[in-house]
Design a binder for these strands. Structure first.
Ligand SMILES: [Zn+2]
Ligand SMILES: [Zn+2]
Ligand SMILES: [Zn+2]
Ligand SMILES: [Zn+2]
Lengths: 132, 132
DNA sequence: CTTATAAATGTTATATTATTACATACTGTT
DNA sequence: AACAGTATGTAATAATATAACATTTATAAG
């Protein structure tokens, strides 16, 4: 069950924008889009993004410096994320595969490290781009 | 067998620096360190980094915007990378685990995407930091 | 209701990371 | 020698992210 987070004003504005977007959004593109709603400075955007990432409502696509709404209802926190990224059209989707997440969450090696979080990004060509 | 790449002057200077470093290095820290060798501009650094990444001599740690020498002799190209990152001391090491790499290289799902590359970053506490 | 505390906001300035554009030089091949 | 591909030099600028400080709002005790 997803914990209900009462988003603040700025958080809600920014989450709604990202959630409605068809793909990942970059911070300054977000900023541009919310200026009419009174959010004027980069820091206001980054603060909201940080919080939204922290509570798992959005994820950062590290290789793209972009943010996407969580597409996985069972993803309470951003501790185990996997994405597929098309290198041609830049379409991104969150992978929801219980075998994969189980495998990675249980992964351990001889290094003595205790893993508490992972992020995986797969790259390739999506169906559409493959057939071009 | 690793293909022998004849690194150019700038590529060699920058690879040697990263290879000798104890941890991942950031681009502008690299720049600072090689200025005495005549590399003056960011672009000279980024061009060498791009090439070194392309041929698999170094990898980019996406979540840190930093670069580390390949620690895995069998890693010919940067198409299948996995790292463990300590969130306390920021120590990074490349994971070389054939089961993991086999599992991820063979991963496919119903999305119709053809995956040709992946990057995985595990986060946690290293042995030292755990016991503090 | 008052006080205390944490969380969020507003604002300005600045730091950090990365690329565009253009000119020149080097390297290997025919 | 001519060509193609790769690498370099340089200046300017774009894109991404954080520091510092003042103020306001929300939440919870007492
Ligand atoms: Zn998610
Ligand atoms: Zn595509
Ligand atoms: Zn490697
Ligand atoms: Zn550590």
């Amino acid at each position: 069950m997803q914990k209900e987070h009462n988003l603040s004003k700025n958080q809600k504005i920014i989450f709604d924008l990202i959630d409605k977007s068809r793909g990942p959004m970059k911070a300054y593109s977000i900023l541009f889009n919310v200026q009419k709603k009174g959010i004027k400075a980069p820091l206001q955007v980054y603060r909201a993004l940080d919080k939204l990432v922290e509570i798992g409502k959005i994820h950062k696509i590290e290789s793209r410096n972009a943010f996407i709404a969580c597409q996985n209802s069972s993803c309470q926190v951003s501790k185990a994320t996997a994405f597929s990224i098309c290198e041609s059209c830049e379409n991104v989707s969150e992978i929801s595969n219980s075998k994969l997440s189980k495998y990675l969450s249980n992964f351990s090696d001889s290094s003595g490290m205790k893993y508490s979080k992972y992020n995986l990004e797969f790259f390739g060509l999506c169906k559409k781009c493959k057939s071009k």
